[in-house]
């Protein structure tokens, strides 16, 4: 077969395709836990490949649609597209036609295009390298190791984040919130998140009554904060720490305490747990003038 600049170009194209694939394979081997950059990189290759292909097809279709005249006169010259695909000129067709036909269908004796072979054998080589990398020399970071590395990375990140954000609210630092705007937000959150079990007014359904003076896990602000944060998994209350921010839990605990006595005795669920005097008295003193809190101390 003649070698000419066309074949070089085909080679370059093949290289481009295969390098796209191998870049994808490569990123697996080097996968440090997921970062957006790496994801974007892979997906860009993927989308880029698809896009190039689509553009090629569309270009081809468009050129047909534009080219209203019959293309027969320029049979002698191969288009760039045809050269890229290493096609033979149409005039060779008669000599390529094989001597048999099936129900009138003839076949041409075209060789498999070189770029096709390049793609085919290229992917096989990539496959072999992949298997060696993962299962013969080293482990190429199999999924268990990849997971451990991801955990370690986040543990480090978390540690440095927490070092910078020491002021975060916990059960020791939680304080009663009286800001009506914040309590209003908590009331809305209560309706969507808590009312399925505790009732729209906190009167209790499957979950206990939150408006009476009886508490299963303590009625102090810090205790309520703790119950919301960690949940009561055995009884079916989920921990909310991953879902609500500590500040939101502080607001919610304050809101729940503000519900004390809002539902008349007997109208809600029967009392459960120990009776505890309304809490939190110590914080309430400071803001006794506030209407919301005055509810709490009655």
């Amino acid at each position: 077969m003649k070698t000419n600049p066309v074949n070089k170009r085909i080679f370059a194209l093949g290289l481009l395709i295969v390098s796209g694939v191998s870049a994808g394979a490569q990123t697996i081997a080097e996968t440090v836990p997921f970062g957006m950059n790496e994801l974007l990189w892979t997906v860009t290759i993927l989308m880029g490949g698809l896009l190039l292909f689509l553009i090629g097809v569309m270009y081809r279709l468009l050129s047909i649609l534009k080219d209203k005249e019959s293309p027969t006169p320029k049979e002698e010259k191969l288009s760039t597209w045809e050269k890229l695909l290493s096609l033979r000129p149409m005039k060779d067709e008669a000599s390529l036609t094989m001597d048999h036909s099936y129900d009138g269908i003839y076949e041409l004796d075209n060789p498999t295009p070189p770029w096709f072979n390049f793609l085919f054998y290229g992917t096989i080589i990539i496959g072999i390298i992949y298997l060696i990398r993962y299962h013969v020399v080293g482990d190429g970071r199999v999924q268990e190791n990849e997971y451990q590395a991801e955990l370690a990375m986040w543990d480090a990140k978390k540690a440095s984040y927490e070092a910078k954000h020491t002021e975060s609210i916990n059960e020791n630092t939680v304080t009663l919130v009286t800001d009506p705007a914040k309590l209003q937000k908590s009331a809305e959150l209560f309706t969507s998140k808590c009312s399925p079990c505790h009732g729209k007014k906190g009167e209790g359904i499957s979950g206990p009554n939150l408006t009476d003076q009886y508490w299963l896990h303590g009625g102090k602000l810090s205790q309520v904060f703790n119950t919301i944060t960690n949940g009561v998994p055995l009884k079916g209350m989920i921990p909310w720490k991953g879902i609500l921010k500590p500040e939101q839990i502080q607001d919610m605990a304050s809101y729940i305490l503000s519900l004390q006595g809002t539902v008349p005795e007997g109208a809600g669920k029967e009392p459960q747990g120990e009776k505890m005097v309304a809490e939190p008295a110590e914080q309430a003193q400071d803001t006794a003038s506030n209407e919301t809190v005055s509810l709490l101390v009655k």
């Binding site: 067709e93 129900d103 269908i105 003839y106 076949e107 041409l108 075209n110 060789p111 498999t112 295009p113």
Partner: peptide
Amino acid sequence: PKAANRPIYSYKL
């Protein structure tokens, strides 16, 4: 090939 009335491009492929 029936609809296009053209030969199959490559038997080897």
